[in-house]
Nucleic acid binder design. Structure first.
Lengths: 100, 100
DNA sequence: TTGATAGGCAAGTGACTACTTGCCTATGGT
DNA sequence: ACCATAGGCAAGTAGTCACTTGCCTATCAA
């Protein structure tokens, strides 16, 4: 459903996770955890990150593959295409402000 | 900020409102209310729609103009561009972009 | 085997949020 | 003046959500 996609994007921590996976795809849970606490100063438990990843996977934004005791997380931005399809975005005549 | 944008998109009723404004921009509050109940069978109060429109306006997705006792609501999809800018979306299934 | 690492499951809690209810202001028509 | 229309403000409520806590399973190395 479209609902899962937008609900997944609604949380700032999940968007940061997507940013991290954009920078380096195929990270494990612990790798994402340490990056969130190091780079983004996010004091967050492993379980919380795991739950966020489950939501992202439910939205189709993250795909996982298991190898031994490791589980790698890959980014999939394809579902985002439906947003631009649903509400057509005009050409960038004047670029807007930057992201946060 | 970016948070307002994604929070605004997180609600299905607000996304339906965006759909309605995509179809016909410049609607008043009552016009949107009646369309939601007619076309989409949404039993929702006027105040609820008003609050949704305030959230959408806070996200920059809706702009308003007053004329007398009427307040018209216009769609602005420009903020959506930042989503595709933040997480690049691949081209759909092998359609390479050759500038013909 | 033991121990350490990588991850999962489930219940509980606090905060947020969508919606309602009730009352108020402003504009336009008669 | 009157009254209906168009919209706004604020408090209360029920449901959802992010996060924690605690315990469990699976894989690998010694």
């Amino acid at each position: 459903m479209a609902d899962d996609l937008f609900k997944a994007l609604a949380d700032p921590t999940r968007r940061t996770i997507l940013d991290e996976l954009t920078e380096k795809s195929g990270q494990t849970l612990f790798e994402i955890c340490s990056r969130l606490s190091m780079k983004h100063r996010l004091g967050i438990s492993r379980q919380a990150v795991s739950q966020h990843l489950a939501v992202l996977e439910g939205a189709g934004l993250v795909e996982t593959r298991r190898e031994g005791r490791y589980k790698f997380h890959d980014l999939n931005t394809a579902p985002l295409r439906r947003i631009a399809e649903r509400w057509p975005v005009p050409d960038p005549s004047g670029t807007e402000e930057s992201t946060s």
